[in-house]
């Protein structure tokens, strides 16, 4: 099939960007979206033009590196990562708009590549369990009820892609933050730091220029790992509890 792409091109962080149109011919249904971009980039390179920069690495939907807004939807029409989106989701003759994540907390570096260092800094603020190497008791010392372990796991599947932020009209990073708070908060090992963790992480979130959460739910709708919106309610509960008890 033949596709018209309109891609956001921006040379550097201080440059103005614009949408540029490209024709891509002979696109196979079985190509991934990124492979379609590869094919276009090969052509651009041979023609001596600058290929389109985009982040990607695993191409298996797990590293969280890829992510662009496709026709206005973070990661495109299927609820998955951009690298796992295949061209069979489009039709011959389609025009597809491709843009970077847009959020104040994610400045554009070039074309479709943005800086998501703010997510790492939220983790730095408290998204961990302090367990220095060598201090651990036997793994079976503390059994974890399967339901808690499963809930922790569900939240721990977050890949840090940032689609939730890109989708949110407020550019809030609350789903990402809540996923980590829930992952660690559901486990017995995470209890000692639970109250302090949520406060520190939310403070950092706010410092990073992410917007506030107003419960719109666009984040959960695009999350490739299906992190549910009620994860944020869990965070709010933890946050209130922690502030009320003054246990920070």
């Amino acid at each position: 099939m033949n596709i018209t792409l309109r891609v956001w091109r921006q040379k550097g962080k201080d440059d103005e960007g614009r949408m540029v149109s490209y024709q891509v011919e002979d696109v196979s249904q079985d190509m991934s979206f990124l492979e379609m971009l590869d094919v276009l980039n090969e052509k651009l390179t041979v023609a001596g033009e600058d290929p389109i920069a985009f982040d990607h690495d695993c191409r298996e939907g797990i590293c969280g590196a890829c992510g662009v807004v496709i026709n206005g939807i973070a990661h495109g029409p299927e609820v998955t990562t951009t690298c796992q989106l295949h061209m069979r989701s489009f039709k011959d003759g389609d025009t597809i708009d491709v843009e970077p994540w847009r959020a104040k907390a994610f400045p554009v570096i070039k074309d479709l590549v943005v800086d998501r260092g703010s997510l790492d800094r939220i983790i730095q603020a408290g998204g961990y369990i302090s367990a220095p190497t060598g201090t651990a008791p036997d793994a079976h010392a503390v059994p974890v009820p399967k339901t808690d372990a499963d809930r922790a796991f569900d939240a721990a599947t977050c890949i840090g892609c940032g689609a939730c932020v890109a989708a949110c009209p407020n550019a809030s990073g609350m789903l990402f933050t809540a996923a980590k708070v829930t992952h660690l908060g559901m486990l017995p090992q995470g209890q000692p730091e639970r109250a302090a963790r949520v406060v520190k992480m939310v403070n950092q979130h706010d410092e990073e220029d992410f917007g506030g959460c107003t419960n719109i739910g666009e984040c959960a709708a695009v999350c490739p790992k299906g992190i549910p919106l009620d994860t944020i309610s869990q965070l709010n509960k933890d946050l209130l509890g922690s502030l009320a008890s003054g246990k920070m």
């Binding site: 961990y128 369990i129 367990a131 008791p137 059994p143 922790a152 992952h183 660690l184 486990l187 995470g190």
Partner: peptide, 17 residues
């Protein structure tokens, strides 16, 4: 042991192990 202490959510059985 180390990974469990860090909060790695390994698969568990109903008994919690």
């Amino acid at each position: 042991d180390q990974c469990v202490a860090q909060g790695v959510p390994f698969a568990r059985e109903y008994g919690g192990l």
